[in-house]
Structure formats: C-alpha cells, structure tokens
Design a protein around this nucleic acid. Structure first.
Lengths: 215, 215
DNA sequence: AAAAATCTGGTACATTTGTACTAAAATCAC
DNA sequence: GTGATTTTAGTACAAATGTACCAGATTTTT
C-alpha cells in the first residue's frame, strides 16, 4: 500500500477511536511510521484527511447503490439494505459522531451532505412506493405523512451513532443489531398484514429480539 | 451579577456560537472583561464550565417538571410540552450539538445523561398510558412497540439539533417549529380518531404547515 | 544515463492551550 | 479597625498544533 493510503487507514482508525480532537498529523505519522513532515507533504492537516475519508465513505455508498441495480423491493430487501448501510456508516463513525465539528472544520462536507440527504429522501420515497404497489406497505392515510417519516428516518440513521457512544461500550456486533432493529421497528405502523409477516420473518431469521430498552 | 455567573452566560453564548473547540478560558475572559488568570480562579478550564452549564440545563428541566404537577395529559398538553422542551434544549444547544465531544471531555455528563434518558423513558411511558386511558392513543398492537417508539423519540429529541446545523442557518423561530412539528408527526400512527382531531387542532392553532422537506 | 518529479526526514517557528504561581486589591467577619 | 478570606490581574511555562521550509533520497520520465 502506498503511503497516502496507509495514512488514511491509520487516520480513520484514530479518528474513530480517539475522537477527531485527539488526532493530529503527528499522532498519525507516529503510528504509520513516517515523519510528521512527510505526512504534511501528503496531507497538509487533519482537515484534508477528514475530507479524503468522507469522500471514501461516499464512494462506498455509491458503489453499494450501483451494485443494487433495479429490483422489486420487498420488506426483507429493505431491512437488509438498512443494516448493510448501518455497517458502512459505522466504519466511518467519526464523521457522524462529531458531525457538527467535522462540518465546521470542513464546510464542503456540509454542502455535499445536504445533497446526499436529498438523494436518500428520493430513494426512500421510491422504495416505499414500490412496497405499496406490492401490498407490503399501507397507502398514506394522512397527507405528507410519509415524507415526514422519511425525514425522521434519515435523521435517525445518523443519530444512532452518537447514541451508541453513550449507551454502549463499543461492541459492534451488539450495537449494529440493536439499532438496526430499533430503526426498522419504526416501519411497523405502516405495514400491511403481509408486510408485518415478512418483517417478523426477517426478525426471526436474524434472531433479533424485540428490543425494549438499552442493555 | 457575580463574576461566576457572568462567565457562564458568556461561555454558553460562545459555546453555542463558535463550537466547543473554538472556546478557551481566554476567549471567554476577554469578552467578560476580566483577566484569564481571574477566570481560571473561578473555573480551572473549559471542561468545568461545560459541566456547570450542563447542571444548569438539568436544573431547568427539573424545574419545568416540578411546575407541571399532576395533570391529566391530553394531546395538546403533550405537544406543548414537547415544544417547550425543544426550546430548553436549544438554549444549551452546544451540549447536544457536540455531544460526543462533550461527554468525552466531561465523562460525568455521560453517566448523568444515561440516567436522564431512563427518567424520560419512564415519563413518556406514563404519558402514553394516560393518553390511552383517555382514548387519544391506540392500544399497543404489537408487543414492545411503544417502548421502541419511545427510544426512537428520545434519540430524535437530541438529534434534531445537529441536523438543524446542517440544514438551517440559525433562525430559531424557523427551526423550533420545524422540528417540533416533525417530531410530533411521529405520534400520528398511534392516535385514535379523537387524538388525530386534537392534534390537528393543535397544528392549526400553531399555524404549523404540514412539513414535507427542508426549506 | 540524465533530468525531472516525487517522496522523505528533520528542523524551526508562531500560536494556542491548560496550568501554576505571585502579589495586589477588594470584601467580609469579628 | 484589623485580620482573614476571597477575588483579581498579570506573568511564566510546558505541551501540542499547524505551517513552512530545506536538503537528501528515491522513483519516474525522457
């Protein structure tokens, strides 16, 4: 692996573990095994590294979407997608963990993220539309209800990471199922009988307990 | 006002405006009009100031609960409470905006916050129970459904602040109604006819538009 | 092989931060 | 009023950070 990539790997790890305010080009350089001056040659400061990592995340997300292709979505598909995305976010958790600080330091991330949210709104709408057509999802019975729901879901899909930091001690295989389950539970009121059944099948297959409270 | 209080006022303002990483005892001292040495006498560092401000917030919240007394909750009451709490949080927005960083620097806040969440869960449960008894809220039709919902609501009730930072430009009177409305919309699927009616009355009285997307 | 570019280690510097300390001033208790 | 306590301003210091720069070394290009 080339030096710039080595730097990104170590930086990502340090950001995630120590928090962005405890990482400097020196701490990264030390762990990579190069001089700070050398690191500064590749990335002038930690802000540029953060931006590079953000672009990596976006690329990951886009790649995942491309591989998806055009499918007839069902509840199972939706759940699997959600959980997979949770894992992707978790890999870059520092971004969502200290999102305000990150966007303050790298304003370009803020702008780009706004667009990302718009895109995800669109995708969710399409998914729900498909699910309605196939009889998994109820028709909207109050105007604007689903648009609001989608917004809340998008907010939640970033907010669970800071929340996990408060209530858990870092075991990924405990955290991801917990929050994936918690978020997916929010679809319940909107599902038809058929939808509920498939959702419960998913839960059973994944061995998800019905989550009531933090451990 | 005594110096320690003056310090807290200015510190709160600076934390909220500039973000916790851009505030030091020197920037505060300068704005208060005292020497940094003097400020260090009252608060050794910014961490202790943050903790003092957190205690202020908790006190505010507790005072609000005490003044509540024992009432028969209805939907209107729930909505008003929610919005009032949103305003309280907004006053101390730096805490929720950089929550991970804050708890990293002041671990006592993390511990205390866990208890706070537990308390709020209990309060929400009681409120929903009351609303069910009075016929505003549907009976739970899937086991554990409401506990999950409450957890999501608690997560959301902290997460809207970072979200607002990304999508708005700081106008409180635009932000609070937007998110209060967005969060309150989540109760819709659980309301009875009677509940929906009162909820829509509330919306009309407050002149809340049905929110579909960010402005 | 020579020239150009890229990469690397090391050093130096200005800023900022928390922390500690001193000595004077102000306030309070008796 | 006097002595003790609290408050204040100012200074000094060590540690850390981003930034800039330089002179070799290495790799790539021609």
């Amino acid at each position: 692996m080339k030096t710039p990539d080595k730097i990104l790997v170590v930086a990502l790890q340090q950001f995630n573990e120590k928090g962005i305010d405890q990482v400097s080009i020196r701490t990264i350089a030390k762990e990579v095994g190069i001089s700070a001056g050398n690191l500064a040659y590749h990335y002038k400061n930690t802000d540029t590294i953060m931006y590079a990592l953000y672009l990596q995340l976006v690329e990951d997300l886009n790649k995942a979407i491309e591989q998806l292709g055009i499918v007839q979505p069902d509840i199972n598909w939706l759940c699997e997608q959600m959980e997979a995305n949770f894992r992707r976010f978790w890999q870059y958790k520092f971004i969502l963990l200290d999102f305000a600080a990150v966007t303050r330091r790298v304003p370009m991330i803020r702008e780009h993220f706004q667009q990302l949210v718009g895109l995800r709104q669109f995708q969710f709408r399409a998914a729900i539309h498909g699910l309605i057509e196939q009889g998994y999802w109820k028709e909207e019975w109050v105007d604007g209800m689903y648009d609001q729901y989608i917004l809340r879901l998008i907010i939640l899909s970033g907010a669970w990471i800071p929340d996990a930091e408060v209530h858990f001690d870092g075991d990924v295989e405990e955290i991801i199922p917990f929050y994936a389950n918690l978020m997916l539970g929010s679809i319940m009121p909107f599902l038809t009988e058929k939808g509920i059944q498939q959702y419960q099948d998913f839960q059973n297959r994944k061995n998800y307990q019905s989550i009531r409270a933090y451990p």
